[in-house]
C-alpha cells in the first residue's frame, strides 16, 4: 500500500501541481480502489495498470470539475508579491550552471511543473505516465484507451511543447 500510495500521490501531484489536491485525490483513489476491488480482473491486465487507470479517470474528472476555478497564472508572474524579487525568467537566465544543474534546483522544478500544468490534459498525462511513471507504450495505451501510435505522438508533442513553452517564456534558458 505504501508503494502504491507513493506512486499515486506522485501522479496526482504532477498532474494537478498542488500538494493539497494530490492528497485528496490520492485518498479518493484508494477509496475507489477499495470499493471496486472486486471488479478487478487479473486477466485483463496488471494491477498497476488498473490502479493507474483508476487514478487517471479520477484526475480527468477532477480536471473537468475544476476547469473554471483553475488559475491561469503566467510563467512570468512572480510567485511572491515582492516586486524586487527576481522573476522565474530571471532565475532561469542564470547561465552559470548547466541545464542539468538548473533542473536540480527547486525553482527550476517549479517552472517545469508550471509548464507541465499548461499542457493539455491529453499531452500531460501521456508525458507523466511515460517519463515519470516509466510505463511502456502498451500500458499507457491501455490506460488511456488509445492506440499506441497516438500515445507516441502525444508523448512527443508533449515533450516538444513543454520545451518550446519554456523557451518562449524564458528565451535565455534553452
Amino acid at each position: 500500500m505504501r508503494q502504491y500510495q507513493r506512486r499515486i500521490y506522485n501522479l496526482c501531484y504532477r498532474f494537478t501541481g498542488s500538494a493539497d489536491e494530490a492528497e485528496d485525490l490520492t485518498q479518493e483513489v484508494f477509496i475507489k480502489m477499495y470499493r471496486s476491488l472486486s471488479s478487478y480482473d487479473l486477466e485483463r491486465g496488471a494491477f498497476v495498470s488498473w490502479v493507474t487507470t483508476l487514478t487517471r479517470n479520477l484526475l480527468v474528472d477532477h480536471f473537468r470539475k475544476t476547469r473554471q476555478e483553475r488559475l491561469t497564472d503566467s510563467l512570468d508572474a512572480s510567485p511572491t508579491q515582492d516586486e524586487d524579487a527576481p522573476t522565474p525568467a530571471q532565475q532561469l537566465a542564470d547561465t552559470k550552471a548547466g541545464p542539468e544543474q538548473r533542473v536540480q534546483s527547486g525553482q527550476t522544478q517549479k517552472l517545469v511543473q508550471a509548464a507541465l500544468g499548461k499542457l493539455s490534459p491529453e499531452l500531460r498525462e501521456a508525458v507523466i505516465l511515460r517519463d515519470l511513471q516509466d510505463m511502456d507504450y502498451r500500458e499507457i495505451a491501455k490506460v488511456l484507451k488509445v492506440p499506441e501510435g497516438t500515445v507516441k505522438s502525444r508523448i512527443n508533442r508533449g515533450r516538444t511543447e513543454l520545451a518550446r513553452l519554456l523557451q518562449r517564456t524564458h528565451r535565455q534558458v534553452m
Partner: peptide, 28 residues
C-alpha cells in the same frame, strides 16, 4: 526540443507524500 522536454521532465524528482497520508487513507 523533444530531447530537451524529455530531460526536463525526467529531472523532476519523486515527491514524498506526507507522512500522515497513509494513516489518513487507512482511517478512511
Amino acid at each position: 526540443f523533444a530531447q530537451q522536454g524529455h530531460r526536463l521532465v525526467r529531472g523532476l524528482p519523486e515527491v514524498e507524500p506526507p507522512a500522515y497520508l497513509l494513516q489518513k487513507i487507512l482511517n478512511v
